[in-house]
Design a protein around this nucleic acid. Sequence first.
DNA 1: CCAAAAGTGTTGCTCCTACACCCATGC
DNA 2: GCATGGGTGTAGGAGCAACACTTTTGG
Lengths: 232, 232
Amino acid sequence: MPRYESEFPPFFVTVDLVILTIRDGELCVLLVERGGEPFQGRLALPGGFVHIDEDLRDAAYRELKEEAGIGKRHVVLEQLGTYGAPHRDPRDRVVTVAWLALGSDLPEPRAGTDAAAAEWLPVDRALSRRTRLAFDHRQILVDGVERARAKLEYTGYAAALIPQPFTIGELHAVYESVWGQDLDRANFQRKVVGLPGFLKDTGQSREGGKGRPARLFTADHTAALAPPFMRS
Amino acid sequence: MPRYESEFPPFFVTVDLVILTIRDGELCVLLVERGGEPFQGRLALPGGFVHIDEDLRDAAYRELKEEAGIGKRHVVLEQLGTYGAPHRDPRDRVVTVAWLALGSDLPEPRAGTDAAAAEWLPVDRALSRRTRLAFDHRQILVDGVERARAKLEYTGYAAALIPQPFTIGELHAVYESVWGQDLDRANFQRKVVGLPGFLKDTGQSREGGKGRPARLFTADHTAALAPPFMRS
DNA sequence: CCAAAAGTGTTGCTCCTACACCCATGC
DNA sequence: GCATGGGTGTAGGAGCAACACTTTTGG
């Protein structure tokens, strides 16, 4: 029998996911339309209740699979923060642990999900005035995007946003999409290949495109980038 | 009546605090001795249950006051992460939101606290093999210290660890204590005064010590440091 | 005077920026 | 050949590490 129950209040604990990927050169987030109250009909981050014997990270992976059809091998997952304002859910006391997931080549939302209506939305649009998200999900999304932007500076996270192997040009496009800013192509090339422990040359090339074939690399997205890339 | 109760399990939610300060030139953390089960007699991070109508940050501030006698104006508080492995508390399902607090001139633990035995322990000692902390608090402490170290690189957090106003020498000592590494005094001086928007010269000097009097500065600990300080 | 701590100068090197330029492919 | 994207060269400058030096106080 729980020892604390008489004395302390029970909470509901959920996980919510900020799932980011690049589609058509734009940074996009997966949103689902809520089928029930509260906030019925509004767009929300995918997520759900944590099970009683489940680790928080496992709950995030489970929701990733259930709501988005994405397996754990296709994303990098990191804890973003926990949101627990007393009335963030108008009906109960719900504390949510938000997670940031970065992936590439993620499936069109549909296969075997609860959420009937799920869609990839460019983050600019998801954060525009006209889009009203459920709960405090706008804030969570803002925090997630900012975290992703910051992490590109000093980790190899960008590599999680494109299928491997990739060309330097593709990696360059990821940085420009996420940061929304132009970066000198030539200097980018030198800098990124010179970073110790980040890229691994496969020896292959991408044939068949326009122009000179590009070398293909794989990358370790857990690598620390030193010195960091700067946005400015 | 809660809508979700029949369907989803209740959790207990706590906050735990990694409170860091500099004492005698060493980075120290506040630990309390547990008075009851579980883990009776072991050292633990201060913390406690979140109230039913309380924001998570407010709960952290309340525990800071109750367990350590520290008011919110004396620290900088930021969310560190949430820990919720199923059996981290052997008796109930408890999810804890950990917070990192940095302060200066913090009181000796005693005044009006529940925790009879609280003490400042150098971080090195708190993380040594011989010290066994309750729950998963060792991991939380490790994460907190690493976060603090990282944040000194690109924010003005160091200023939160010394009383204001302070001299460059004192700030220098903070960096060396937290990073456990020597930094060239002369280069430190130039770099830190040159960072835009970080230090503000008060026009005063610290008299009465040995050697030439040092200028006194105040700082904005929320400042972003660009370019960042590097540890290497 | 000397010791001690604050603060400045200087030098050589590294890295970055802003280009210009060459390379390898498809058509 | 030309267009297109990949990749390298280079000159100038900004910033940094290392260390010598000067300044201002107390005794």
